[in-house]
Structures are given as structure tokens and as C-alpha cells.
Amino acid sequence: MHGSKHPRKSEYGFLGISRPPSLTNQVAKRIAAAIDEGTFQPGARLVETRLAEMFRVSRGPIREALKTLETENIVVIKPGRGTFVAAPSCDDIEQIVAVRAVLEGLAARAVAANRNKQELGQLNLLCKSMCDAVKRGDIAGYQQLDWRIHELLFEFSKNRLVIQSWQSMRCQLNLYWRGRINNLALIEKLALQTCVLVRCLFEDEPNEVGDIFRSHIILANYEVMIRPIPEWLKSYITHMIDENQQIHRLQDEFTRAEAMSRKSETRKTG
């Protein structure tokens, strides 16, 4: 019958129309983003009335959004006490490290295989900015740039499942590491290692790049946590980074990247 307002049904059932994200999901994403950006610190209490005012919604969607975030381990709801931003422990992060190492190894392998010059150039410039921040003693700047490099690595992998898996754990990692790395000597070492990793994306064989990234994630995380690496996890460490052999090559690469950036800016303004 023409003009029927009833949904059309196929042999597989009703042909539905995709719905826009619910208000609860939108609010959950905005609260998670605020936590990720540092608006709410680990362990901070989240008051529903204040969140409702902040996001200009009623308390109902706020309450449901917090329940959603609890299932993602971003907040903790304590009956009779309130809702708090999660404060992941070393034990929590230790469970995540092995998974992250494998995922980042896969992402790095994909990026190295693709070798998109524009993407690699972007990572290289971020490395230069990160090292400049370390030289200034800007610890917060270092952490933001280092985090951005790893975020882009996953994005550039273009592997949907790897990206989704990373997104499911990234907030917990960010909450744990925020403000924990304050030793400038260690930061200098980690920054150089990150630059060496990015350098590998330019030159090394993709499978080897994946192994290098996986090994580094395990070694670096356990060094910062000041914990011994479990025996079962040691078999995942197959490569070590030799920073000393890379320093001069990195400096040359930074100089080349700066020259390319200036040339690009000249073209835009010319």
C-alpha cells in the first residue's frame, strides 16, 4: 500500500534507520574528554549537580553517563559515598602494558609498511618539539607531545580494531601516568628513545619495527613503574634501543625536518 507510514519489512526483519547518539552517550563522551584533558584529576569526586550545570543537562543523563563510564573503568561509583575519577594502580596498569605493547607493535608495523611521508614528517616534527620541551625543562609539554606521538601512531595505522582497542585503554593509561614522571634525567632518556622509535619507522623493515616498539613499551613502562618485568613477559622483549648510535642521525633528521617545514611555510605565504 502506497503512502504507508509503517516501517518497511524485509525477509530479514524491519529495515531500521540508524539513530543519532543518545544524550547519555554524548554526555559520557564529554565527561570522559574532560577527565582526559585534566579538568578532573584522578580520585576527584564528580558531583552530579555540578556536572549537570557544567554540561547544561538534567541529572538523569549525567547519572546514566557515569554508569557507562564505570563500565569503561574511567570512574568508580561508591554506594553512599559518590562517584570518583578512577585512579588506576600499578597492578591495573601492569595488566594493560602487555596488551598495549602488542597493539602498538601492530600499529608501528602498519605505519612502517605504509611509509606515508607526510605522516612520518608530522611525527618527526613532534619529536623535535618534544626534545625542545625537554631542553626547557617543560615536563608537562614533554608529556603532551609524547602522548600525541603515540596517539598519532595508532591513528596512522588505519587499523580500526587496533584503534578501538587502544581507545578502550588510553584513558586509564593517561590517568595513571599524569604527573608521575618528574625525573628530568629519565624524561630525557625516554624522549630520546621515542625519537629513535620514530626514526625506525623511516628506515627499518616493518616486522622489525613492530618488534622494536613492542619491546620498548614493555621496558619503558616497567622502568617508570620501578617494577621487575614478569618472566612470562620477557619473551616479548626481542629488541633493545641503542640511543648512542642514533643521536647524530637524529640531529640531522631534525635539521632536515625544520628545513622542510620552513620551505612549506614559504610556499604557503608566497
Rank of each mutant, 00 (worst) to 15 (best):
H2E: 14
H2R: 09
G3Y: 05
K5T: 12
P7S: 08
P7H: 09
K9M: 07
F14P: 00
F14K: 05
F14W: 11
I17H: 13
R19Q: 14
P20I: 08
P21E: 11
L23W: 08
T24P: 08
N25C: 05
N25M: 02
Q26P: 01
A32E: 15
I35F: 08
G38M: 03
T39E: 14
A44G: 09
A44Q: 13
R45G: 01
V47F: 12
V47P: 02
E48Q: 11
T49E: 07
L51N: 06
E53S: 15
F55D: 04
R56K: 12
G60W: 08
G60R: 14
E70N: 04
E72C: 03
V75G: 03
V75S: 04
I77M: 06
T83L: 02
C90P: 00
D92M: 05
I93Q: 07
I93T: 01
E94C: 04
I96R: 08
A98F: 08
A108W: 02
A108V: 04
R115F: 06
N116G: 10
G121V: 01
L125Y: 07
C127F: 02
C127N: 09
K128P: 00
M130K: 07
A133K: 07
K135G: 04
G137R: 07
A140R: 13
A140Q: 15
R148S: 10
I149A: 00
L152C: 06
E155C: 00
F156Y: 14
S157I: 04
K158P: 03
N159R: 05
Q164W: 02
Q164P: 02
W166A: 06
W166H: 12
M169N: 06
M169Q: 11
Q172P: 00
Y176N: 01
N182V: 08
I187L: 13
E188G: 03
K189N: 13
L190N: 09
T194P: 07
V196S: 06
V196D: 02
V198E: 00
C200M: 07
L201I: 00
F202I: 01
E203S: 06
E208S: 14
I212D: 00
I217C: 08
I217M: 03
N221M: 03
P228F: 04
S235K: 05
M240V: 09
I241V: 03
D242W: 02
E243S: 12
N244F: 08
Q246M: 11
H248A: 13
Q251P: 00
D252P: 01
F254W: 11
R256Q: 07
E258V: 04
R262T: 12
R262L: 10
K268Y: 02
